[in-house]
Structures are given as structure tokens and as C-alpha cells.
Nucleic acid binder design. Structure first.
Lengths: 194, 194
DNA sequence: GTATTTATCTTGACACTGACTAGATTACTC
DNA sequence: GAGTAATCTAGTCAGTGTCAAGATAAATAC
């Protein structure tokens, strides 16, 4: 837009950014390629060149999202009280990167077999499985069950928070609220480790 | 369809049923009023008369869904090992009534202020809060936190299951898998009650 | 330095969608 | 049986995703 027309320069990034903004405003379903093209100041068919189709664009969003989530979880894992921090960070990511989160777990919106996507997803899963081990093996709980319980809990909490289904009398900061709720899992271990 | 045209007889129900089928096939985003009209053998504008607009139709689906979920949870609450059964039943509902579930927690798709809907939602919430009390008050856990932890866990598990993000080596029956994972919450109370 | 190839973007078209209007047909009410 | 309300049809409009063909600019080869 700054220079002459034709050859936007960084259209791919511009479209993704516009998509994130549009999704934040009114959800992934309301996104239209033509609207994104308008926001970026290009013709209505320009986005298709970079992403193939609408699902291709959302695939790019999902890949970026899983990458970001992986970074966030990795950073949290290094903190004291590591696994709880990972769970809280998961919720923090969902709220702060709502647009990404709302695409990532809706495979019907994107190309779920994209290899880049599969790699980013695998990294996230790995990150959630690591760290669960110390919390299992006492009540006969398998490590996998402990990890799935933790993942399910924070994922469900984030989803319910985003969809407005949680009560109004929770802490304003979703991460504080999530910490309270997450402590119900593994309370006996909460202080023992780290 | 059986008798002469005009005045379908039970178009409202027919459209909802067609919508549920279409959602099961390819998600709520892919539903088109015109396609539903075609499936029901009526003109393209007939559905609008009963539901106002597309969001109105999905509101009806959500209301029906929350009603069904309330019934399912109520029945489960009467069983031995009540609260665990409620959680497992929640997951069972999500899998067996996938189309309903995928609409219910996506408020941007429907008219979230519909009074009938709010009533059905409130009943579900109440059902999930009742039964949590015995599982709290030992580690300083509030009843609300226990209920939210349980709800988040089963909701998250169901969502992840539906979106295909869970590992493949889980039990084939999602309710069995959910029971295993849900037991990680409140393991010390699992056998004490009921 | 020019020619050719490649990447990027535009233009135009098509079938499809949700929503609106006006009108036709049937059922209900009194 | 006449009048009213409910139900459905038909036509239209702006908007959408996707495709094909062409225009423009950048990168590359020579």
C-alpha cells in the first residue's frame, strides 16, 4: 500500500494478520477471503494465490497457533511449580491468542493432513505429556491418564471460558481462575515438587 | 411429502432433523438453509418462516441439545457412584449427540440471549454443580472449584475427542476412556461414597 | 543489458448462500 | 361459508468461494 500497487510485498503475512483480527472480532466462520483482500488493499482473488483456498489460509493460522502454543508451554515448563504453570499458560494462550485457539481445534476448517501442521501438533502433545509423570503412579494412575486429565481440564476450562459458559463470580484474570481450578487435580502434590 | 405439497405438516421438526444430519456430516459451518429446504422438499425460503434466520435454527438446535443433556445428566446422577457417572455421561452425550454438542458451545452461531436457551443452560449448570460438594472441603477446595474442575475435565476430554486430538491408543469406547481419565480427579474419594 | 522465465496480482465469471419482499395456498375460527 | 392467520412459493439482491485467463513486476539466465 505504501509503494505502487501490484506486488504488495508481504501479502501472505498481511492476510494472516487480517484474518486473526477478523476472527477475533466475530469468529472463524465469519471470515471471508474477499473481506481480507479488501483489508489488505488487494483484489478479491489475491489471497487464493498464497493459500490455495480458505482452508489453506486457516491451515496457516493453525500452524502458527500450534507453534506459538508450543513456545508458551516450553517457557512455562521451565518455571518453578512447572506442570501447574504449563496448565495455566495453556489457558493464558487460549485467552490471549483467542483467534488462533478457535481455529486450532476445529479440524474441519483446515487441511488436517498438512505435514507442517502435524509436526507442530506433535510438539504440543509431547510438551503436555512431559511433566505429567511425577503426578501419576500413586493411586495406580498411569502417566498417560494424568496427562490427559490435565490437558482435558485446562482445555475444557479455556473452551468454557471463551464460550462464556462459566459463572461470573470467578477471578477477572482467567489465569488466576484457572490456577484455582487446576489445583483440584493433584492437590496432594501441589507443594511437594519443585 | 406423503400428501400433497404446501403445508408440510411438521416442517419445523423436519428442518431440525435435517440440520442435525447435515451437521453430523460436515459441521455446523457447512449447514445451508437452502440445502435443508431441499432435503425437506420445500422451497428455499420456507425454513426462514419457522426460525427467522439461520441463527434462529441453530438456537433451536442448542435448546434441544441442552434439554437432552440435562436429561442425560439427571439420569446419570441417580446411579451409584453418581458424580463420576455424570461426568462419563457428559462425554457420552457429546459423542452420541455430536451435532447438538458442536452447536451448544458456540454461542456466535445462535441467539445466545434466547430465554428458552438460558433456562436450559441453567438447568445443565445446576446439574453439574450438584454432586460436587462431597468431593471438596478436604484440601481446602471450594465446592465451586471442584465442580468447575470436573466440568472442565469432561468438557475438555469430549472436545479433544471430537476434534481428533487424543492419542489413538485409548479404549475404543469414549465413555470407558473418559472414566479412566476422570478417575484422576478425586481418586481418594472414588470408592468412599455411594 | 536484454530476453525469458517465474511469482504475484487483477479481472471476469459461475454457482452458491442468507435475507428480504410480495404473493399464493391452505388451515383455522367464528 | 367468510374472514383471518399460518404456512409455503417465487423472485430478487448483495455477498461469498473458486476457477480461468490475462496483466504486471521481479528474478534469473545468458
Amino acid at each position: 500500500m505504501e509503494t505502487s500497487n501490484y506486488h504488495h510485498g508481504d501479502l501472505r503475512r498481511a492476510i494472516i494478520d487480517a484474518a486473526l483480527e477478523a476472527i477475533s472480532e466475530s469468529g472463524p466462520a465469519a471470515v471471508s477471503l474477499r473481506d481480507l483482500a479488501r483489508r489488505a488493499g488487494v483484489s478479491h482473488a489475491a489471497p487464493a494465490h498464497h493459500f490455495g483456498d480458505k482452508a489453506g489460509l486457516l491451515t496457516a493460522v493453525a500452524v502458527q497457533g500450534f507453534g506459538l502454543l508450543g513456545d508458551v508451554l516450553q517457557k512455562a515448563a521451565g518455571q518453578p511449580d512447572g506442570y501447574l504453570a504449563v496448565g495455566v499458560a495453556y489457558v493464558g494462550f487460549a485467552v490471549e491468542h483467542r483467534a488462533h485457539f478457535e481455529v486450532m481445534f476445529r479440524p474441519e476448517l483446515y487441511h488436517a493432513d498438512d505435514p507442517e501442521l502435524l509436526a507442530a501438533q506433535a510438539r504440543t502433545s509431547r510438551m503436555l505429556y512431559e511433566g505429567a509423570a511425577p503426578y501419576a503412579q500413586d493411586g495406580g494412575t498411569q502417566t498417560q491418564d494424568a496427562a490427559l486429565a490435565a490437558w482435558s481440564l485446562v482445555h475444557g476450562f479455556a473452551s468454557l471460558w471463551l464460550s462464556g459458559n462459566l459463572p461470573a463470580d470467578l477471578p477477572d484474570d482467567p489465569q488466576d481462575a484457572a490456577r484455582q481450578v487446576a489445583r483440584v487435580l493433584f492437590p496432594h502434590k501441589a507443594g511437594d515438587i519443585a
